[in-house]
Amino acid sequence: MNGTAVLHSIIDGVLTGSVYALMATGLTLIFGVMNIINVAQGIFVILGAYLSYALSVHLGIDLFVGLAITIPTLFVVGIVVERVFLSRIKGPERVVMSILVTYAISLVIEGVLNIVFSANYVELHAWYVNRSVRVFGIYLPYIYLLGFALAVVLLGALYIMLYRTRFGASVRASLSDQTSAALVGINVRRVSTVCFGLGVAVTAAGGMIYGATNAFNASSSYDLISRLLVIIVLGGMGSIGGALVAGIMMITIEDLVSVVWGPVWSNLAFFLILVAVLSLRPQGLFGKPSVRVA
């Protein structure tokens, strides 16, 4: 182990973690506004990856250019899913029912993807995927740099939308207290639908980067959703900033431990830290201490 290796692992962690943060942001936004745990978020990421794959392989569209198609497509998919399935879930069992419904949605999408693309692994290819630039003796892969930039841009856009627009004010009011938001005239239902659409739309970007850095098939969603849930629990359910910090923290800790003590300890070390954090702050790093009610 040397200083360069440690620095390299931290850079790797920040670059990769930002993409996980992007995927987790959608999940936490949906939970924050709708009180819904969207376990289909993993399969939406994979759906985004497959859409990029189809555009790239069949139409020769560049992965990043293709986002102009895949992001709006997944936004619409999110809107449809929310309107058709999730808006019907009401009452005190809403959170539990949302897990079951989104799990069912996940299984259906997985089945369809398996039929359309088979269970064979694929990976997204472009000239910049396997290339890198050398900076102070460290090779930084273009795809991770581009993924980081994409995450910064999209998270920045999300931030501006939330804090600089009228709609963002409605979202924040809904995040804070749905009943009060409704009382001051906010159409919470519409806000929820759009937020679900946005939460799913960001998976198109996350899915593209994931698919360019990992061989994947429809079943890859299981690994993803478990990690995304851990990120939003650590960051604080419903906290967008928390998802960002926790995403980067998770991968950076794992990468750092991998270099310092060995890869076999990486997951264990992270989960020990997770348990320690949750013992001190059960609501997560940036979550609200109050218990949410439907």
């Binding site: 360069t4 290796a5 390299h8 692992s9 790797d12 962690g13 990769t16 996980y20 892969p141 991770y144 850095t213 690994d223 990690r227 998770m250 991968i251 794992e254 990468d255 991998s258 270099v259 060995g262 890869p263 076999v264 990486s266 997951n267």
Partner: peptide, 20 residues
């Protein structure tokens, strides 16, 4: 000579360590 978990979140660091 290192072992790694079956499903790490990120293979890059392990592969980079080998490459180094």
């Amino acid at each position: 000579y290192k072992t790694f978990p079956a499903e790490p979140s990120d293979y890059t660091t392990i592969a980079d360590a080998v490459a180094a």
